[in-house]
Nucleic acid binder design. Structure first.
Lengths: 126, 126
DNA sequence: TGCAATAGTTTCACAAAATGAACTATGGAG
DNA sequence: CTCCATAGTTCATTTTGTGAAACTATTGCA
């Protein structure tokens, strides 16, 4: 999305969190370092294009790092930067809200409980 | 956006916060009751259609209320529900993040400081 | 020589979301 | 009987995001 030259100093974070898969992706990374294929599986059925798009954007915004490990087969690890870790409280607050206000009118709760992610986020809150 | 039948119990909140203007709109409402035209001006250049779409969705999700005041000219007020107020911590966390990590690579900070909104959000955190 | 496994890239097509302009409804005042 | 102000709605169009399929690159091993 573009324009965003609208009101609000919160813009920077809108740009970061925007996009269909972004929050889910960050949730995964709060759960620890992940490889490309791993993310792809966990976020299935995300397309590789969308996944790279998101990761590149987050790299650009200094939220995640990309580390290439040469060797055969090569592999790549993605992790949160310090700046990214500091998003923890936001995710923790979202998580808490869902716990207590979860059931959106007309929706079922999921069955996915990234407990480690949450504890990591709580750490990040200090 | 659709599908969202993907991983994550955070889904309910993804559905609420999704959409180009939603976060900005909620920020405004954390700043107090607002009328349609008021929101339209503050979120300029949002189109009236988009604004109603968002408001209707948020109503459906029990995040905002719509109150019609007959009379001439009629007017309508939008406000957060209790459930909506409880989103406060999320917004407060976003706000805090922007304060401390604001300058996205390649972006300027805005000049908009919804102070009242923030204090209201802080209240909502208790 | 060619296959396996990793992590992508490229291209094109499609669907959803946002926009813009013009229009509706209400009812009192001039 | 027209105008003002409010708060929308409708419809056509454009923009954007997402997706699917197929392709690239690397290098060791059989």
């Amino acid at each position: 999305m573009m324009d965003r030259s609208c009101p609000g100093a919160i813009e920077p974070i809108l740009e970061i969190l925007d996009g269909k898969w972004t929050l889910l992706l960050l949730f995964e990374l709060f759960n620890g370092t992940k490889r490309f294929g791993e993310l792809r599986r966990k976020l299935h059925p995300i397309s590789p294009k969308t996944l790279t798009d998101r990761l590149r954007l987050l790299e650009e915004k200094d939220i995640v790092t990309r580390t290439l490990y040469p060797g055969v087969p090569l592999h790549v690890e993605y992790d949160l930067t310090e700046r990214g870790q500091r998003l923890g409280p936001i995710f923790a607050a979202m998580w808490a809200w869902v716990q207590e206000n979860g059931d959106c009118p007309g929706k079922e709760a999921g069955d996915y409980t990234p407990e480690v992610a949450v504890s990591r986020m709580k750490d990040a809150m200090n």
